[in-house]
Simulated scan of single mutants.
Amino acid sequence: MSGLLRNLLALLIGLLHHNRKNADSTVTTTFWVTPLDAGLKVLKSDKYLQYAETAQLDYLLHIGQFFPVLRSGASFVNVALQVQFFRPVPLFSRVTVETRLLYTTDKCAYFAHRLFAKGTLAAEVLVKMKFKRGRATVAPAAFLAVSFAQVPEQVQRWEAALQGSQATAPAPVKKG
């Protein structure tokens, strides 16, 4: 199923659950793996990311922040993604995605999306995202009213890995 159609369906279904959860809640979204999501027999790797993005949209609906984000002129942009695959997901399987907010800073929000198929963890997608209004970054606190006592170890490890990869990345090429 195309990402646009999946997002539209999630939006319509999510309206039934609009504003029923807090930002610190885990939100569950369910998908069916269709032939458009699979290669020969299993879910294609890029679809895990699409499921996570749609689950993030559903999360914003459940916590009642999807429309405030839109009204403010903001959108959400994924800055970094990390996927850990545990097992393949067969065609026509029902996939449950559990989405929760791990942490926020003054610029970014960190989400964990755990994908389950047949009751077993199939993958985990970590997402570092920003709310953007044009070129400006909007603090996640504007939409996600959650305070955190400390940075979770999972976020610390991921940030350290991201910083390490940036240090070893080649310098961008200047044009002109």
Rank of each mutant, 00 (worst) to 15 (best):
L91A: 03
V97T: 10
A52D: 11
V33A: 15
A10P: 02
K118G: 05
N22E: 10
N78F: 11
T28M: 06
A109L: 14
C108N: 14
V77K: 01
R6E: 07
T30V: 11
T30L: 02
V42G: 03
V89W: 04
L5A: 11
A23E: 02
Q50A: 10
Y103P: 06
A55R: 06
L115W: 03
R71W: 10
L61M: 14
A80D: 14
S72Y: 10
Q50S: 11
L5S: 06
F31C: 04
H18F: 15
L15M: 12
V69L: 06
W32K: 11
V79P: 00
S93R: 06
D46S: 15
D24M: 01
F67I: 14
T104Y: 01
L101W: 05
I13H: 09
L9R: 15
A109S: 12
I63Q: 03
R94I: 07
Y59R: 08
V97F: 05
G64D: 07
A38R: 08
F76M: 10
T54H: 01
I63S: 03
F116G: 03
A74T: 03
Q84I: 09
L91Y: 05
N7G: 00
L5W: 09
L81A: 08
L9F: 11
V33K: 08
K21L: 14
R20H: 07
F116R: 05
L81N: 15
V42I: 11
A74I: 07
A10E: 05
W32N: 08
N22S: 12
Q65W: 01
N22I: 00
P68V: 04
L70S: 05
L57F: 07
Q82W: 03
L16A: 09
H113K: 03
A52M: 13
K107V: 10
L5V: 09
S25D: 15
L81Q: 13
D24E: 10
Q50R: 13
F86A: 11
N22P: 00
H62I: 04
L12A: 13
K47H: 09
V27C: 12
A109F: 15
R71V: 01
Q82V: 02
L36I: 04
Q50P: 00
V33Y: 11
L15R: 09
P68R: 03
L16E: 05
F92E: 04
L5G: 00
E53S: 12
G14H: 08
R6P: 01
T29Q: 10
H62A: 15
T99K: 02
L40W: 14
P68W: 04
S45Y: 02
F85S: 02
F85P: 02
K41Q: 14
L43D: 06
A55K: 10
D46W: 00
F86G: 09
T26I: 14
L40N: 12
R114Q: 15
T30A: 10
P68N: 05
F66S: 03
Y110D: 05
T28P: 00
T96S: 12
N78C: 02
P88A: 08
Y103W: 15
T105W: 04
Q84E: 15
K107Q: 15
Y110K: 06
